[in-house]
Design a protein around this nucleic acid. Structure first.
Length: 643
RNA sequence: GCCAAUGUAGCUCAGUUGGCAGAGCGGCUCAUUCGUAAUGAGCAGGUCAGCGGUUCGAAUCCGCUCAUUGGCUCCA
């Protein structure tokens, strides 16, 4: 038979050879490294016998699917170890994920940290035994009998469509329902680590029972595992929730409440700088600034539909049943800006109207959702709504994306963002406006725009807003969790609900299109992202403190004050520490705060008119004339402020 | 909301079988005027997250609540 290899070469092999045998025939090394194989695009076990001409790719740990085969086997090894130690545990599911694997167990008592150590020990034993994995198939009835007493596996089997093969994998005394593929034997799982225990609902629905999930990861070599764990630890050192507090960007207070961070002077300064930048940029791009109330009567949200779709997420004041006026803090800005649009008549000549607002919003998140500055109950969104004619929507959409890309580049985060095209789901009736035709046309429009721009995006079902599809810009935090940082939405529903119109050139009243968008996202979340991205070392232009001046003797304080005033007059953000002692400690403290510049002066500098300059990332630049330092600094600030 | 873990001074942490709440760093005062973390002396700083219970006696044991953290669900 003829086998086409992944590099395009075609080789002749004996009929009936397994993928592993072919890998070994290709090279000894490949045979050793092989974990799984891909035959005509389908990932299979290495033991798969090949009977006819095909395309064959041998998968190693370097390929995503190779990794997943190893991780999937690791999850089986973990399940086997759990059953050895806790025979009463019921197995649910245990897949490979992006960074490793997990398995969900139904156990009477959730596992503890000590249990993880025990399970790891048992896993090591299973790995050392190098037990081969065997695949076999059963009929539906046989499979149901086999998993008698396990409601989870029974449910999975019952959901398989008639005629679908039901495969199982056996390793020693452990057998699991599994589509595969797997590596050849447990010995391949050489370096692994169980990372955490978590609760997780069966099949991801809060209506179901909560199971106990164990997360883990595995590598081919101990060194790779050690390297991964080290990186994980380093990433967590950048955690905005830790670093942001240490660097005094924000704090929280029990008496204030959950999800209500207190932004401290440094955090507030950075946000102010970003806000001024964004508002100026938007103004130059034709946006009109609005300021609208932080609350409204429930009537407004009833028109918009938020009352039906979002009531649980709102802070509501007043009880309707007691005959009181019912107000709610706003969870979004849209209905307010729509009322501004409606306060005047609009001709097609007026459009597009681009209303923008730096908008505090309030959402009553449930207690388990709050997280640092990323998920909070009050946040400030750089929000805007663009009301335009159908003919203008494509151009406006592109203009918004241009603004967003410009802002991302200014923040230096364009390579850290992924694009998600968030679509509706016809199955989730409660969540979306019921107008399948409008959903289809709007999604087709948005997709065609994205393709025209040539954006590299991922499609996601059931992630849309209730009134239309979204382009979400996603950022991964230090724990690998993805959050939306900015969003761009086309709304087909609300113009009609608010009866928004414009008079077209033919004298007819027509419905405008509405684009919802945020340009820099919400400032709290964006600040969190920037802290993690830069490990607290904010770029010079947005650093809340750009230069710290340190005096060595009381005699040099006046000299430093003089230069501080010159820097201040030039718009540089500085502070002066006049404690003329512990100079080493003060420098270390300033370095710990990741300040861009640290300036030291004593009697010598005061006499010579110089400053000792230390620059972040470059270390000690030595002594230089004060004038030279100042022009260098101003030059650097100017350069980075022009985007 | 659900499953878990955690909570002692501004920070990092100690506190034994329940028996006087501690250290280092930081802060303040005085002395020192010092060159890339650690000068000396002194002082202040705590409702041991909160409330209740058990006990002669609770930071410690039990219960509830609040907050923080990791997940799940939800979401910008």
């Amino acid at each position: 038979m003829k086998i086409t290899l992944f590099d395009g070469n075609v080789k002749e092999f004996e009929n009936g050879m397994s993928a592993l045998e072919i890998a070994k025939a290709l090279s000894q090394k490949l045979g050793k490294k092989a974990l799984a194989a891909k035959i005509d695009g389908n990932v299979v076990d290495l033991s798969t016998k090949i009977e006819k001409d095909c395309k064959l790719e041998i998968l190693t740990f370097e390929e995503e699917d190779g990794k997943k085969a190893l991780w999937h086997t690791a999850s089986h090894v973990m399940a086997q170890a759990v059953l050895h130690l806790y025979p009463e545990a019921k197995l649910a599911i245990g897949p490979a994920i992006d960074t490793g694997f997990y398995y969900d167990f139904d156990v009477p008592e959730p596992f503890t940290a000590e249990d993880l150590t025990k399970i790891e020990k048992e896993m090591k034993r299973i790995v050392a035994q190098n037990i081969p994995l065997e695949r076999f198939e059963l009929s539906r009835q046989e499979a149901l009998d086999f998993f008698k007493g396990n409601p989870y596996k029974q449910e999975l089997i019952n959901e398989l469509t008639e005629g679908e093969t039901i495969s199982l994998y056996k390793q020693g005394d452990f057998t699991d329902l599994c589509a595969g593929p797997h590596v050849m034997s447990t010995g391949k799982v050489k370096a692994f680590k169980l990372l955490s225990i978590a609760g997780a609902y069966w099949r991801g629905s809060e209506k179901n029972k909560m199971l106990t999930r164990i997360y883990g990861t595995a590598f081919e070599k101990q060194e790779e595992l050690a390297e991964y764990l080290k990186k994980l630890k380093e990433a967590r050192e950048r955690d905005h929730n830790k670093l942001g507090r240490e660097l005094k960007f924000f704090t929280t207070n029990e008496a204030v409440g959950q999800g209500l961070p207190l932004i401290m002077p440094k955090g507030a300064k950075t946000i102010q700088i970003l806000q001024r930048f964004v508002e100026d940029e938007e103004e130059s791009r034709g946006y009109l600034l609005t300021k609208t109330p932080y609350m409204a009567k429930s009537d407004l949200y009833k028109i918009s539909g938020h009352w039906d779709h979002y009531k649980d997420g709102m802070f509501i004041i007043g009880d309707e049943e007691k005959g009181e006026e019912v107000l709610a803090l706003r969870p979004m800005t849209c209905p307010f800006q729509y009322m501004i649009y409606k306060a005047e008549h609009h001709s097609y000549r007026d459009l597009p109207m681009r209303y923008t607002e730096t908008s505090p919003l309030f959402r009553n998140e449930s207690s388990g959702e709050m997280h640092g500055l990323i998920r909070v109950r009050q946040f400030t969104l750089a929000d805007a709504h663009i009301i335009c004619t159908p003919e203008q929507v494509a151009e406006e959409f592109k203009a918004v994306l241009d603004l967003i890309v410009y802002i991302m580049k200014s923040l230096g985060i364009e390579d850290d963002i992924t694009y998600r095209f968030s679509k509706w789901s016809p199955l989730n009736k409660e969540k979306y406006l019921d107008d399948p035709e409008a959903w289809e046309t709007t999604q087709v429009l948005m997709k065609s725009l994205l393709d025209e721009i040539g954006l590299n995006y991922k499609e996601a079902d059931d992630e849309a807003a209730f009134y239309g599809p979204k382009l979400d810009l996603q950022f991964k935090n230090v724990f690998g969790k993805e959050d939306t940082i900015m969003t761009l939405q086309i709304d087909f529903g609300l113009a009609e609900r608010f009866d928004m119109v414009y008079v077209d050139s033919d004298g007819e009243k027509k419905r405008p299109y509405i684009i919802h968008r945020s340009s820099i996202g919400c400032y709290e979340r964006t600040l969190a992202m920037l802290i993690e991205k830069y490990a607290g070392a904010m770029p010079l232009w947005m650093a809340p403190e750009q230069v710290r001046l340190l005096s060595i003797t009381d005699r040099s304080v006046e000299y430093l004050k003089e230069w501080q005033n010159k820097l201040k007059a030039a718009g540089v953000r500085t502070s002066l520490d006049i404690r003329s002692e512990k100079i080493g400690y003060k420098i270390r403290e300033a370095r710990g705060e990741r300040l861009p510049y640290i300036i030291v002066a004593g009697d010598k500098e005061a006499e010579n008119g110089t400053l000792a300059v230390r620059k972040r990332g470059e270390g000690d630049l030595g002594e230089m004339s004060a004038e030279k330092f100042m022009s260098m600094l101003l030059g650097e600030i100017a350069e980075k402020s022009i985007f």
